[in-house]
Simulated scan of single mutants.
Amino acid sequence: MPASTPPPEVAVTALFQALWPLFALIVGGYFMRRKGFPGEAFWPAAERLNYFLLFPALLASSLAGAPLDDPGLARQALAVVLGLGIAWLALLLVRRMRGWNAARFGAIAQGVLRFNTYLGLAAVGSLYGKPGLTLAALMLALMVPTVNVMSVWALTAERGISLRALLLPIVKNPLILACVIGALLNVSGIGLPGGSDRLLNLLAVASLPLGLLCVGAALQPQELRAEASALGWNCAVRLLAMPLLAFAIARVLALPALESALLVLFFALPTAPTAYVLTRQLGGESSLMAGIITLQTLLAGASLLLVMGLIQALG
């Protein structure tokens, strides 16, 4: 679908056609794992392969050819920082009012701030093609380290954490390293010579469908039975309030159509499945985190269609 805004009735149809295959893969991953196919050992190995090789290849190849000298990038970066900053301040205020401990606050904060990168880039590729993926990679280069720092701090605020312990997971994150490598290849003028662009593109093509299958495999519906109130309002904030905030910021900063759509899309995504791993590692409420991930992912099919359809209708 082109970056320009089509008529609303065409936009809704195009959105549905672009998004339903993505959620079909998520549902497929869920049932494949529950049926034991191709085997329990496959899913952890697939997640590692995607996280450490295939998905970094997608980010590096996208950034290696991105227009980093575009003057509009500064405004896009400001929009991202404003959106995350406002949400973070609101979370701190609510935490103070409700008296949440770090274990609970860490899960709730990740439910509001983090986003499913696999689903995001798959949706961008389906809706906006290569130009959208290039801009999305630039946004990820800023958003991934920012939300990771916020997430670690939220889970460890009570017991304190050293600067080294806070930044080390960020420095070692393969997605962030891929963004840095791609940007360095770009600004150095080296690019991706000698067919290396083709190699990375082949790896990248495999990353998104495998990632979506893994998202489905990680769903834990059994965790939806408790904490109904917390799950409900957290999903409403992430899937509805956050994209509305992004839309307001895009309007205030007068972002172009494609940049506005991508900002709203990333703020409308369900939270990241990897939030569960981080929550367990740092002693957070892992059952609440699993419930948030599962419910947000299940509701995202309808909420993304609603939010993006409204955004396109409003122009």
Rank of each mutant, 00 (worst) to 15 (best):
N148Q: 10
A66P: 03
R75T: 03
L213H: 04
F23D: 12
T156S: 15
G232S: 14
A123H: 09
E47D: 15
L54C: 11
L135H: 01
M32P: 03
L310S: 14
I311L: 06
A154H: 13
N186D: 06
A137W: 00
L278W: 04
P193Y: 00
E158Y: 07
G315N: 01
A74R: 05
M242S: 03
A102I: 14
G191M: 06
V277N: 14
F105K: 02
P270A: 13
R114Q: 14
L138S: 08
A257T: 09
E47T: 07
T279V: 08
F37Y: 12
P273E: 15
A206Q: 07
L15T: 11
G125W: 07
D69A: 15
P193E: 04
V152M: 08
G28F: 09
V187G: 04
R33E: 04
L262N: 08
P67F: 03
A204S: 14
L135Q: 01
P21M: 02
F37H: 07
F31K: 09
L288D: 02
G106H: 03
L203I: 11
L203T: 11
F37Q: 13
R98K: 06
A241G: 03
S188P: 10
V277C: 12
L239C: 13
G284W: 02
C179G: 10
I293G: 01
L142W: 07
L185Y: 04
L53K: 00
A45G: 11
L239G: 09
A18M: 05
L199S: 09
L78Y: 10
L119V: 11
W20R: 02
R225S: 14
L84G: 10
P221A: 08
A137G: 01
A66M: 05
F267I: 12
L93S: 15
T134Y: 02
D197E: 15
N50W: 01
V147A: 02
L199F: 04
A136T: 14
L113R: 03
A261Q: 14
E40H: 13
L185W: 08
A18K: 03
L91M: 15
P221W: 04
L89N: 09
I293K: 04
L163Y: 07
W43P: 00
L168N: 12
M143F: 08
N201C: 05
I176G: 08
Q110T: 12
R198V: 13
R98Y: 01
G216K: 06
V149W: 05
G301S: 07
G83D: 11
A257H: 09
S4E: 15
A14F: 02
A79Y: 04
A18I: 05
F37E: 13
S61I: 03
A261C: 02
F37V: 06
V81K: 06
Y276G: 13
P273Q: 03
N116R: 06
I181K: 08
K35M: 14
V27Q: 05
G309P: 00
L255E: 00
L219Q: 08
P8K: 11
L306F: 12
L210N: 09
S207E: 08
N234I: 15
T146P: 14
K130C: 10
E47S: 15
A300Q: 08
A77L: 15
L305F: 05
A60Y: 04
I176H: 07
